[in-house]
Design a binder for these strands. Structure first.
Lengths: 241, 241
DNA sequence: CGCCACATTGAAGGCAGTCAAAGGTGGTGG
DNA sequence: CCACCACCTTTGACTGCCTTCAATGTGGCG
């Protein structure tokens, strides 16, 4: 079989996905043969909590939100999915239905995999299963972290932690300060941190008042990294006023 | 090789563990060959958060507590481990160190498995890897649930949910009521539910005052299951006083 | 320009945690 | 068998963090 250019690009993309890492050519081919390309418009629901979990996805482009909603309508974002990440793969092993909902946060392109077809591939592919194991443990760490923060830390500590994480991942050093650029709205950030936009706004204001950070729209400048680390660890509280 | 009686019993026990479910005789033998039997006295620490994660365990008897502690010393119980359950197996895939701590809640007997030895077994044992996958997804569901409750539900809803779960799992029907027997202290239950004993006490009192439940020490009688379900779902709040 | 979603700020109220003290319970050893 | 002690549980008073509600500010885009 001859390969088209797009197909080669897809090959390269798949090889970079954690889930398909270090698979052989034939295995990648098998993966592709059961993949279904799909597009979702911004804000379109991909699946809802309680739907039968018969499909999982790999994000190709765009951004996907995984979330839960409280009876009162408050939303907890569990995870933001970026290109290359798989999502809902854990759901396939967790039960009959999706335990959370999923929405395209931007115009998004995904590969969809039907459960039965994929499970067949797993059975005789050790590497794929190990990748899956790695993927589940990433989610496990994510949720464990979330539990810790929600249960044991206050909003300031969570904000501090998030900013430090962002700084490590994608922060731009600028003299003694680090610049972090939020790629989501503050309302969404609040929802990730298990709070609401008003509280986040006030928390950022308090941190700014103490010159630990500086907020300029979506740009946040970390001035005192050490202090922020102490707040994140709960060793120190920022003062009121 | 001839098998002693104790060894046969151990075989049977291992076969019943989710992690070793439906393994062949030889595989069980390999498992046993790398297992190390250990005992911990009640309240003895098995491992602490931050320790190098080089061992995972299967509980044989007793009870084990997996928990995190806040900077201020408040404790969140993540999971109670009962005989047959494995624990810390996820930690091996999550990073270098244990992400939580573990303590014997009763006198406890475990099998310990060194990471390297076990990882070798995984590599060419599909069934074991699949069992591991199942095990991780159980933990995933557990934590996801915890996140949902901590973030989106109030203490009454969490208590209601816990009681209903207990009722389903081990409740004794008694006429139109269901009797649930707590096998842990209320302080521990509070810590499982992400709160403290005082708050739990008050919550149980409120539910009692409305004749939804009746509390007699460690025995809790569910009087109005339907109402409890509505509280658990957050559709209804119990009133003050 | 005017709309709309997002962000900020203020005022008020509630849920749950803290602190303190008084019961209760179970287990151990005299 | 009882007394004591440690630990758990309950209750009260108080505090504070965070949410709710409401209003105003802001910034991007058709």
């Amino acid at each position: 079989m001859e390969k088209g250019k797009g197909e080669i690009r897809l090959d390269l993309f798949l090889r970079m996905c954690p889930l398909f890492y270090s698979l052989s050519n034939e295995e990648i081919d098998k993966i592709k043969s059961i993949a279904i390309s799909r597009r979702f418009n911004k804000h379109e629901i991909i699946f809802s909590e309680g739907d039968p979990a018969e499909t999982f996805y790999v994000a190709i482009s765009g951004r996907v939100k995984i979330y839960k909603v409280s009876p009162e309508g408050r939303e907890q974002i569990l995870h933001m999915v970026f290109p290359g990440d798989s999502f809902a793969e854990a759901a396939m092993f967790m039960g009959k239905t999706y335990p959370a909902s999923s929405q395209a946060d931007l115009d998004t392109e995904v590969l969809a995999f039907r459960k039965e077809a994929f499970v067949k591939l797993i059975k005789d592919n050790t590497q794929l299963t190990l990748n899956l194991l790695a993927s589940l443990s990433r989610y496990l760490r994510l949720f464990l972290n979330l539990v810790e923060e929600l249960s044991l830390k206050d909003v300031s500590a969570r904000v501090a932690k998030y900013l430090l994480d962002m700084a490590k991942r994608s922060g731009a050093q600028a003299g003694r300060t680090i610049v972090v650029e939020l790629d989501i709205t503050k309302t969404q950030l609040a929802s990730i941190l298990g709070t609401i936009s008003e509280t986040l706004s006030r928390t950022l204001k308090k941190l700014s008042a103490e010159r630990i950070i500086k907020v300029e729209g979506k740009k946040i400048i970390i001035i005192d990294k050490e202090y922020l680390e102490e707040i994140s660890a709960g060793m120190r509280k920022e003062k009121d006023n």
